[in-house]
Design a protein around this nucleic acid. Structure first.
Ligand code: SF4
Ligand code: SF4
Lengths: 158, 158
DNA sequence: GACAACTCGGACATCTGTTGTCCGAAACAG
DNA sequence: CTGTTTCGGACAACAGATGTCCGAGTTGTC
């Protein structure tokens, strides 16, 4: 799993509390990570249509829709790739005891089990929205946390 | 995800139908894969205690317990590593707006969501045993499939 | 009991994917 | 119109996974 998912999720949570575009460099120095690499993750989010990029002076990134409508699964798929983690090689069709091709119309038992497990994983991630995460953060660290971060982002807090 | 998990699962399913030890090389030529690499996966299974290795002439691998008691999760953890796929970097404690350490006694919302999703994934894999896979294979390709493979393994089917 | 053959086990290269970095193109503000 | 700021994709460095190899140990046989 790509470790950059954590950064992207943090950025999305932070972006819920701002209305002005925020540059990638500011977000990077907010949690002390490599600015260039975070930019790459944000580009992935932009390609997926989760955030809108505004170029030029006073530009940056903004969410395209309400945080309630952005699920964690969307972010994970955008950064880590939409393909399933377990890819079948179809080794049942190889070797001396290979299964005849006409018997391979449906995925085999192993592939089905893996696909089912990943489906539950996706459902669990889909049931959590970025707004839920923001709410939990507020309840964990106090109600002023998000507003404080927003203010720090707005002002030239260097 | 390590692609070798597929090979290991196939080997476990095949091993359900034999009572004599089977060498790694035979399993490798059964589904036409690299013998040395499959040996590595089997070593991982042996280290995890899922299969027992018998050395010397007429040696090989055998299951240590009933297939009903071996879950898919066991195989996955043995081959792919037991650690969670998503590892938290604790970036909330870095940067100018870092959360104070006394507030970080519990995992944050993001980490909790990911951990919950992985827990469901593990439960789904834990609920499927190798015996279930073998049963499904029999029902998919006919009742004689497993016996045929067992015979091919026993005889010097080259 | 000695021998020989066969097996596993871990140590050694290689290769793709992730991590990290950089500079040019485009756009907004003034 | 110009300067500055920003994004976007193209370019290296590293790591883990993939693939391979030979030695230690065991078993069966003579
Ligand atoms: S048995 Fe399942 S996992 Fe294995 S090759 Fe066939 S479809 Fe793929
Ligand atoms: S917010 Fe969660 S995922 Fe991010 S650093 Fe803190 S514990 Fe880790």
């Amino acid at each position: 799993m790509s470790g950059g998912v954590e950064w992207a999720l943090h950025c999305c949570v932070v972006l819920t509390s701002v209305t002005e575009p925020v540059p990638a460099a500011r977000l990077a120095q907010l949690h002390a990570v490599s600015p260039s690499y975070l930019a790459k993750q944000l580009q992935a989010l932009s390609r997926a249509g989760l955030v809108r990029s505004v170029q030029g002076n006073a530009g940056g990134y903004v969410l395209t829709r309400s945080p309630e409508l952005i699920t964690v699964l969307d972010v994970v798929e955008a950064v880590d790739g939409p393909g399933p983690a377990f890819s079948c090689t179809e080794i049942r069709q190889r070797g001396p005891m290979a299964a005849p091709p006409q018997s391979c119309t449906v995925p085999c038992a192993i592939s089905r089990a893996m696909a089912g497990a990943e489906a539950t994983w996706r459902d669990a991630l889909r049931s959590v929205s970025v707004a839920d995460l923001a709410r939990d953060v507020e309840s964990d660290y106090g109600s002023g946390t998000l507003a404080g971060i927003s203010a720090w982002l707005g002002t030239g807090g260097r």
